[in-house]
């Protein structure tokens, strides 16, 4: 337990450090003292706007989005007992993006701000239900990935269709954002829309730890231990949909975070899914913060997409996982 507490404390510290770094890095080139004075004491009108209205929501969103993806990945992997489960790969992110695009293009989100995360959430719920229906509750690696590919392809085709039919001249280039994700120029409005849903989702997912631990023994054993499997499943679906849906609605699809982070942390938490949940949430936040800092350092004027970096790290990792899975004959 102390070792686990130490791990969580370390991850939280790393996350806080990256959060601070994220606040201090940006194209405006403010000094550290200047930045902090503007952030905390509101010194300098333009500096205060930059710190409070541009950088703070950006760093805050990175934390919430990363936490949502890391936590959801860990929960899905625990429930499906499958190391390949990840919100992006199994189509939840794509569906949430579709919901968000529909909300924006129909003007619903302009009329009612909550329609943006709301539609994304509904689409994400449908995708998770469809996935669980197709792959079955045990979710064998093969059927899970196939179902996920089908859902991803379908939702990205529908997203492209909606954008193609849009009267907006910028709609065609929006695909890039929805496929790759970006935190550039997001505002407090977006943070306020996404954060409550991410917190709600986390509140549903974190208590599932005990049930996920019991599930590692098999479904019968879990039921014998008094775990209500249908309730567990419902909470998982809603928790993943709420957190990933809201995160995707404002930042687009950031891939591979939910896959890589639980895997990196699993050796440090032992084989217990319950311990992995919070750790993955913190780790996911750190990874997205890191990626977003890298985006600004590598090409500050190019609006490099966040998903480009996470995929550059994540895809080789994914291939390695498949290789190992095949060797072990899972």
């Amino acid at each position: 337990m102390t070792r686990h507490a130490l791990l969580l404390a370390t991850l939280a510290l790393v996350m806080l450090g990256l959060f601070a770094a994220s606040l201090l890095i940006g194209p405006a080139g403010l000094g550290v003292g200047e930045s902090l004075a503007a952030l905390f004491r509101g010194e300098g009108r333009a500096e205060t706007l930059v710190m409070r209205e541009i950088r703070l929501p950006r760093a805050g969103l990175a934390v919430f989005v990363g936490a949502a993806l890391g936590l959801s990945g860990a929960a899905l992997q625990g429930y499906l007992r499958n190391p390949l489960a990840e919100p992006g790969l199994i189509g939840v992110t794509g569906a949430a993006g579709l919901g968000a695009v529909v909300a924006i293009q129909t003007g619903l989100s302009a009329a009612l701000a909550l329609a943006l995360p709301g539609m994304a959430l509904i689409a994400a719920v449908l995708a998770v239900l469809l996935l669980l229906g197709l792959a079955g509750p045990r979710g064998g690696a093969f059927t899970l990935i196939l179902a996920g590919i089908a859902i991803s392809a379908f939702t990205s085709a529908l997203t492209a269709l909606v954008l193609n039919l849009s009267p907006n001249p910028f709609a065609a280039t929006e695909m890039m954002f929805w496929l790759m994700g970006s935190l550039a120029d997001r505002s407090m409005t977006h943070l306020a829309l996404a954060a409550p849903f991410v917190v709600l989702g986390a509140a549903m997912l974190i208590p599932l730890g005990r049930g996920l631990d019991a599930l590692t023994l098999g479904e019968d054993a879990a039921e014998a231990l008094g775990i209500g499997l249908s309730r567990l499943r419902l909470m998982l679906v809603l928790g993943v949909a709420a957190s990933v849906g809201a995160a995707t609605a404002v930042t687009g699809a950031v891939g591979f975070v939910g896959l890589v982070v639980p895997h990196l942390l699993r050796p440090l938490t032992g084989a217990q899914p319950s311990r992995l949940l919070v750790a993955s949430g913190l780790g996911g936040a750190a990874m997205v913060l890191m990626a977003d800092i890298a985006v600004r350092l590598i090409a500050p004027e190019r609006d490099l997409k966040l998903g480009v970096l996470t995929a550059l790290v994540g895809a080789p990792f994914f291939l390695h996982l498949i290789w190992r899975t095949r060797r072990e004959g899972v």
């Binding site: 940006g26 194209p27 405006a28 403010l30 009108r45 333009a46 500096e47 706007l49 930059v50 541009i54 950088r55 924006i104 293009q105 003007g107 989100s109 302009a110 849009s166 009267p167 907006n168 001249p169 910028f170 709609a171 280039t173 929006e174 954002f177 929805w178 120029d185 687009g252 500050p300 004027e301 190019r302 609006d303």
Partner: peptide
């Protein structure tokens, strides 16, 4: 080219001429 929002805010020009917005909404705008 690209003018990051942070730079625009710091420079605080007296006049900002913004592009007209189109129907259907977009993340870009």
């Amino acid at each position: 080219g690209v003018l990051p929002l942070e730079r625009l805010i710091m420079r605080a020009p007296e006049l900002v001429v913004r592009g007209a917005r189109y129907p259907g909404g977009s993340r870009a705008e």
